[in-house]
Design a binder for these strands. Structure first.
Lengths: 233, 233
DNA sequence: CCCTTTTCACCTAGGTGGTAAGAT
DNA sequence: ATCTTACCACCTAGGTGAAAAGGG
């Protein structure tokens, strides 16, 4: 679906006010989201799967834009995976209305386990083709497949630093490169942000929900080695 | 070594007049050049080996530059590989003083065989990081490893089109992105070109000089499968 | 005969989750 | 007990020259 701009869309520069972004692979994202998406974080950095990809429209074909992503904590909680009631029955499953887990009855689920760790330095990831003309960005799908997630607070590879067992919302920003000399004064007008709720996820160092593991194996080409059954188109 | 600018260095824009480029892997290029470098061209496009790489200096760190390459015919001849005298003795080897072939006595050599084919459309290859700031270009070695050579006159992948059995000189160009509104009028002042004689080569569809083949196998990591003897650093 | 095309085994380079060991 | 790390087999993706087949 199309993510609307956040509050305060008024007063935006004409080069971004009509910008729109459609999330690609939306049905796959939703399939993961129904189970509770998990993303692996490692010391060396791990790519996201599904990859965050958007189709852009409404840009000025002749203007320059920078595209970037960041990740914001969805709440101030730390989570753990388990039963939480001493194993006498299924977990409550959902602590937040936005944390779906249909299968809590059959297995474990995510439970709040205290306050969030201090937020890591809020890094951003610039799309490596930045800057580029609006026409270039709109020509085809924009893919953030070079973006990597790490749990290493001292990372010096420019990867996105996240806390494991915390929940995050990816955000996508379109920034107009303002050629005016005093462009800093208009910085707040020159960008537009997009947030797709179906892309939120739990950062983990190892998968907790076995259904997530199976869906990753089934849909990520690089995990084909772990598929067992007969293939399907 | 450092390639000097061509004639007419005067009148250049101050953003390029001090630009300098040092060819990387110079000793490897010279080793190939001593034997008579050959580069494979294919329908699908083939990378060069050695890869054309330069270390830049003298740019304005804050100015934008575009980097690109093109290939110019070294003469108006078509060549063929063989003895050329009916097999009664070694070939003459060198038809041009700039076409070295130390080993003509022991094997075959390149011989002129008529006038050159009509020149293919003179394409250029933009370095994919273009445009970027001078500081970015000077930070590390600039590598043209995405550049591919093809003999397909109808190529629509943007590869460099060359005629097989013809000799070429790679050229490297540094172009200052002039922010002035009437920058077209200064286009001739805003670039600087570099030409390294040790990078000239013969375009071929299959290697002719067996020594070239062996040196490629010995030095290109992707050809390691064809090495036989014991390894060396 | 000379040159080009196609296919192939063999590499480099790097993205997967499994697994077992390690850390707290 | 829970979470993290390091290593591994197994993939994708794509760059090599050899060899055989194709074309003029």
């Amino acid at each position: 679906g199309w993510a609307g701009e956040g509050p305060g869309a008024s007063g935006k520069n004409r080069h971004v006010c009509h910008a729109a972004a459609r999330l690609e692979m939306g049905s796959l994202w939703e399939e993961f989201n129904r189970l509770g998406t998990e993303m692996i974080v490692t010391k060396a950095g791990r790519r996201m799967f599904p990859t965050f990809q958007v189709k852009l429209s409404g840009l000025d074909p002749l203007a320059d834009y920078v595209l970037l992503m960041d990740f914001i904590p969805l709440d101030d909680k730390r989570y753990r995976w388990g039963w939480g009631n001493g194993g006498r029955g299924p977990g409550l499953g959902v602590l937040s209305p936005s944390l779906p887990c249909r299968y809590a009855f059959h297995s474990s689920s995510w439970l709040a386990a205290g306050r969030a760790e201090p937020a890591a330095p809020g890094r951003v990831h610039f799309h490596p083709d930045s800057p580029a003309k609006g026409a270039q960005w709109m020509r085809q799908i924009v893919s953030f497949d070079k973006l990597k997630l790490t749990n290493n607070l001292l990372d010096d590879n420019g990867h996105i630093i996240l806390n494991s067992m915390h929940r995050y919302q990816p955000r996508f920003h379109v920034v107009f490169v303002d050629p005016r000399r005093d462009s800093e004064r208009f910085a707040h007008q020159n960008f537009k942000s997009f947030s797709f709720p179906e892309t939120q996820f739990m950062a983990v160092t190892a998968y907790q929900n076995h259904r997530i593991t199976q869906l990753k194996i089934a849909s990520n080409p690089f995990a084909k080695g772990f598929r067992d059954g007969d293939p399907e188109p």
